[in-house]
């Protein structure tokens, strides 16, 4: 059973980078990866707490334009595996996942850069095959690309699966309580990094009102996030319809493709 779980976790690590860079269905976002890892490990609640912590840290971390970012999905995956293998207590699990996951996730940056460098050779080889008229060979060469990227996450996961829980078990015996408590506290503070980073990209100054409204409703009234998201959607919808009516040029241009745009509203 443990072997099967280990194999599935490594396979998920291999798949998640391919999906994030391709189909974008299971993605490598911590929440979804954490849920799948939770099902594999047979402990969804613990996995979701760990995944939630990393998900909130990862907010605002977008790998756009070919930039390399810490791989929080990888951090979540190895964090969950090692934590569930070593402890049954949720607070401890969070601390362990953070201690194992953060460094591995950071390592993800270097591995991603390496993968992109190696893929230059794949591109060259494929184009060479094309010009030699070997079209089938060209097609086969392309598959090396996803293989490289899959390995950039599967290899570190494999190492954590083999050695991670043994090392952590030994460490837990010698590490004092204030230290694991401290990591748990850090886990509750770290979402701030994702939030603050996100605010750099967003028009905060222009729409400070919305930020404050969200804060007040959450802090003073304690409304759940989903409810506040619906409220935010209400504001956004009002803005969108008003703006579309007041810019006739855009409205006219838009008439032709209402059906296309309509789908995106489901979000």
């Amino acid at each position: 059973m443990e072997i099967i779980q280990a194999i599935l976790i490594v396979a998920l690590a291999f798949w998640m980078v391919l999906d994030q860079q391709g189909f974008v269905i299971t993605t490598w976002f911590p929440s979804i990866i954490g849920m799948i890892a939770g099902f594999i490990m047979g402990d969804v609640p613990t996995a979701m707490v760990i995944a939630g912590t990393f998900q909130l840290m990862a907010l605002g971390v977008a790998n756009i334009g070919g930039s390399s970012v810490p791989n929080y999905g990888l951090a979540t995956l190895v964090g969950i595996y090692v934590a569930i293998r070593t402890t049954g207590d949720i607070e401890n699990a969070k601390a362990i996942a953070l201690a194992v996951g953060v460094p591995v996730g950071m390592l993800g940056i270097q591995l991603d850069v390496l993968g992109k460098i190696l893929n230059s050779y794949v591109s060259h080889a494929a184009q060479k095959a094309l010009n030699e008229g070997k079209f089938a060979k060209m097609n086969r060469i392309f598959w090396i690309g996803p293989l490289i990227f899959g390995l950039t996450t599967a290899i570190p996961t494999l190492l954590c699966v083999i050695f991670g829980d043994k090392i952590v078990k030994v460490l837990l015996d010698v590490v004092p309580k204030w230290f694991t408590d401290g990591l748990s506290i850090a886990g509750s503070m770290l979402p701030v990094v994702g939030i603050a980073l996100l605010l750099q990209f967003m028009p905060v100054k222009k729409y400070l009102t919305m930020l404050l409204i969200g804060f007040v409703i959450s802090a003073y009234l304690g409304l759940p996030i989903l409810g506040i998201a619906i409220l935010g959607f209400a504001f956004a919808y009002y803005f969108f319809t008003q703006k579309m009516n007041s810019t006739p040029a855009a409205a006219a241009a838009g008439n032709g493709n209402t059906s296309v745009e309509g789908d995106e509203f489901d979000e």
């Binding site: 907010l59 729409y207 919305m210 404050l212 959450s218 998201a229 703006k243």
Partner: peptide
Amino acid sequence: IFTEAASIMGLTVVGALIPAVVKM
């Protein structure tokens, strides 16, 4: 315009997140 509208929704959610998930 769609992006602006989505930013409005995004910022409302982010504002709510600060007290909901950052704990000290």
